[in-house]
């Protein structure tokens, strides 16, 4: 089972790409998925507190479940004007 991860703004620069696929064995909550993402991309760990998650185009909390085929967006705040 695979989930597509999309990165934005500073997270892209931290990882060096704008997205990747990640394998899950069963549906997992967003929080757990993030731990798995960090295991593969440790550079993302320190951004944890500032990331907003969206699953399939909708805002998601840490407890929301991610399933096979879902797209998860990691959206950090930006402040330029």
């Amino acid at each position: 089972m695979a989930v597509t991860i999309r990165l934005f703004a500073i997270l892209r620069e931290a990882v060096g790409k704008d997205g990747f696929d990640i394998h899950i064995d069963e549906p997992v909550p967003v929080e757990r998925l993030f731990e798995q993402i960090v295991a593969e991309h440790p550079a993302l760990e320190r951004y944890k507190s500032m990331i907003t998650f969206a699953v399939n185009g909708d805002y998601a909390t840490g407890q929301d479940l991610v399933k096979d085929g879902d797209e998860v967006a990691l959206i950090p705040p930006i402040s330029g004007g």
């Binding site: 500073i10 320190r46 951004y47 507190s49 500032m50 907003t52 805002y59 950090p76 705040p77 930006i78 402040s79 330029g80 004007g81």
Partner: peptide
């Protein structure tokens, strides 16, 4: 509701620092 907590100050570059 979107961003309950502000990011740590040095972690998000401004336009002056990051360019735009």
């Amino acid at each position: 509701c979107l961003y309950p907590a502000p990011p740590p100050p040095e972690m998000v570059p401004s336009c002056a620092v990051g360019g735009v």
